[in-house]
Structure formats: C-alpha cells, structure tokens
Design a binder for these strands. Structure first.
Length: 112
DNA sequence: TGCTTGACAGAAG
DNA sequence: CCTTCTGCCAAGC
C-alpha cells in the first residue's frame, strides 16, 4: 500500500519529457489533444500538469505544434490568446462558449 | 523543511 | 455556464 506518491527519478523525468514532445509533434494539423491523454501515453496518468509545465518551460517546444494541446474541456491555455488564432487558422472550430469543439477535433494516438 | 504555484481534471454549487 | 474546491505533483522560494 503506497501511502505516498510515486516520484519520478531523474531518468524517468527525462524520458517523460522526451515522450511528451514526441507525442505533441505527431498531432495532425487541424486536430487537438489533451494534457491528460499525453501524460497517460507517456506512462504517468496523474501527471497532466507536468505536460503543461514541460511544454511551457522546455526550450524548443515553441516550434512544435503545442498550440494543438488543450485541456479536456477544449479550453485554451490561460494567458496565451494567440493559441486560438493559430488553431482557427488550421480550421479548428470553437463553440460559442469559447472552447474547442472537441467532438469534432479531438485526436488520440492509438497504441497497439 | 514548509508553503505557494500552476498551459490539469473532476466534482459541486 | 461560471466559480470554487480538492486532488494531483514538480518547481520555486
């Protein structure tokens, strides 16, 4: 019974970061995916917040399609209004409440 | 060592 | 629909 959370070793953290960037680079144009999905694919389902941290603070993430990552409700990143513009330029539709129409654009990488 | 901060998620009101 | 709270967990201070 773990009454304490698993902690990432430096090696696991490094690997996690790689996987996150790797997955983000595969999001197709005009589609979006979520922080939670990426975290789960990387093997750390409870680390959705770490995905956001990685994208924001990792140098080099800017030239990846990180604007295609939104939260589960289709909300864009707080304080990054340009994200919406970038998505709309790819044809992503937003609902009247300002959220991405997830039913239409959600993309999930399949694993065999 | 302890408290605060988030590019999150889910539940509650 | 929106706000607020709790759980989450690495980073900052």
């Amino acid at each position: 019974m773990k009454d304490y959370p698993d902690r990432m070793t430096p090696e696991q953290a490094r690997r996690f970061g790689e996987d996150v960037l790797n997955i983000v680079s595969q999001i197709p144009r005009g589609r979006v995916t979520t922080y939670g999905h990426i975290a789960a694919l990387a093997g750390w389902p409870s680390h959705s917040r770490m995905v956001g941290r990685t994208l924001r603070y990792t140098p080099g993430a800017e030239h990846l399609p990180c604007h295609r990552v939104v939260n589960k409700e289709g909300r864009t990143a707080p304080g990054w209004s340009r994200q919406r513009i970038l998505l709309e330029e790819e044809g992503v539709r937003f609902k009247s409440n300002g959220h991405v129409d997830m039913a239409r654009h959600l993309w999930e990488l399949e694993v065999e």
